[in-house]
Design a protein around this nucleic acid. Structure first.
Lengths: 227, 227
DNA sequence: GTCTATAGGGGGATAGAC
DNA sequence: GTCTATCCCCCTATAGAC
């Protein structure tokens, strides 16, 4: 676990605060910071805005989180870990087939990104600047390699059910088709003239379509093409 | 044409500067600004850094471009227009087939993004904040709809050669598979343990693979599956 | 056109009262 | 724990000399 989260945890334990019904000041600050950082990025977010959004005073931000940067690191890390954990859980379900995993990853992330469309671009653009110190200890280097998904994929290749032997292309294509439309929404909506509702409807369609496309791309058994 | 570019053009014409072999001060500033804005974004880039990168004095930035924001608007607009024009030219070539267009878009953008990997995330994250005033006049709403590509796509649908009838899914999938790996590089490289050279090699592979995948996804004629 | 020097404002952080 | 007031640095922009 990294410094930021460790400090955070110790702080919590030391204070022994009881669970409250309405969010504690500490949580209100974090929620406000998360909303603003994710929407506008680190550099464009002012601590004064965070305080206002949280309905508290600026000084409290430093009281609880020491500095803007420490607060940001916490949020970037939590957001990324949550995002990866979601993927990890789905890829390591021992009771689902390869096809079912594709369906669940697709549906799960499309729902998540519909609710939180700014998360991927936030993660991807901020990791570029802050990754060095933050993600070294995360050790997700073997997350894909050691997954149940990977074992099933290798089986499918061995049995000749799948054509492409590099599983990274498979994962890349799956994540691309799921995530990119949300990242590129602004541009895609301008490329064609698209209403706001139309985009959301397309994304719901893609829950069904992406698994079919993936099967068409990688399955050797052509009779399985459903559409 | 928008204000930013118009002002720029008038400025140039008024001054009647002759073409020089080494870049003019004006161009040096713009080049430095482009490199920094694209790499770090608007808010995180300081005018002092731009001046230093350009090897000139800070005051000259304001002399030539009035303000940081005007300089930024110019660069965001130019970058976006260049990016879209590249696409527009390829999609409107009257002498290439649908399949050839897919191949050329793929190869063209993979080469471009290999050289300029930060461009898409820059465009996509900054358009979010600055789009309002900048892109209204660009009128790219009919760019796809009026293209040769679209006519060929509709023909292919009418002849039953293509399954998916919504061309936006087609374009979305193509652009997703091309662009997303560059946008998500940092995360993808951490998801698996990947060397630096490995990523570039995969992207070169994808020049060949993406057109094949697209054909598999959307072509009704299964015998065309080459791989 | 290009420089130095500086004005002017904004933003992160803290001191100290309550 | 929470507030007000304030410090101080840094950044953009400009005045004015050359």
């Amino acid at each position: 676990m990294c410094d930021v989260m460790k400090e955070k945890k110790e702080m919590k334990e030391k204070q022994m605060k009881p669970m409250e019904l309405d969010a504690s000041t500490e949580e209100k600050i974090k929620a406000a910071a998360r909303a603003l950082f994710i929407r506008k990025g680190y550099a464009a977010t002012r601590t004064r805005d965070i305080a206002e959004e949280a309905g508290i005073n600026l000084a409290l931000l430093n009281y609880y989180y020491r500095s803007k940067e420490k607060l940001f690191d916490l949020i970037l890390l939590e957001t990324t870990v949550d995002f990866m954990k979601q993927l990890s859980v789905l890829l390591n379900d021992a009771h689902s087939t390869l096809e079912e995993k594709v369906e669940r990853v697709t549906a799960g992330y499309i729902d998540f990104l519909t609710a939180e469309p700014h998360v991927p671009i936030f993660m991807l653009s901020e990791i570029r600047n802050h990754s060095g110190r933050l993600f070294e200890r995360l050790a997700m280097g073997r997350m894909l390699k050691d997954s149940v998904f990977m074992k099933q994929y290798e089986e499918a290749v061995a049995q000749g059910r799948v054509t492409e032997t590099n599983p990274l292309h498979f994962v890349m294509n799956l994540l691309s088709m799921i995530i990119f439309p949300f990242v590129g929404k602004e541009l895609l909506q301008r490329l064609v003239a698209m209403q706001d509702g139309a985009f959301e409807r397309m994304m719901q369609e893609r829950k069904r379509l992406i698994p079919v496309w993936i099967k068409m791309m990688f399955s050797r058994n052509e009779s399985e093409q459903i559409l």
